[in-house]
Amino acid sequence: MVINPVKYIIIFVVSVILQVLIFNKFLIASVVAPFMYILFIVLLPFDTPRSLLLFLSLGLGFTVDIFTNTPGVHASACLLIGFVRPGILGLLTSRETLDSVDSPRVKSMGFNWFATYVTFLVVIHHLFLFFIEAFTFQGFLITLLRVVLSSVLSIILIVLSQFLIFRN
């Protein structure tokens, strides 16, 4: 199958712009702060080579870091999910399915599968991100609360995006 790189460049740019211009300003009760930009990593094709996946994740993380003045924070969190993504896919899906379908979408994989897959990635990303950002286990519970509530919102946003914009 042929992968259209232009489509993924657009997804990259749109994810970053939505994140830095809209969702970085978003804050409910000073706890909930969604990070939906990992949508780009979520949507990458199944057969993306693992090392390429790492570099793309790194690039995405650094781009967001530049806008938020947090060198390394988003980059390290994105790297982690770039690294575990193939493992999670293997856990959720059989080899045959991965070979027959090009990329993770609600349309091709079903709502339940997609939601579970997104939940895994978002929770790992947010857990790592919020603790790296706080850089302490002081106030463990408040950070955990931020992780849980923010994850819920990010998952909703990413799954919703499937029905709103990224139809194909």
Partner: peptide, 9 residues
């Protein structure tokens, strides 16, 4: 890469 980014943090 992870060591690199974390050392930046």
């Amino acid at each position: 890469l992870e060591t690199l980014t974390l050392s930046m943090v």
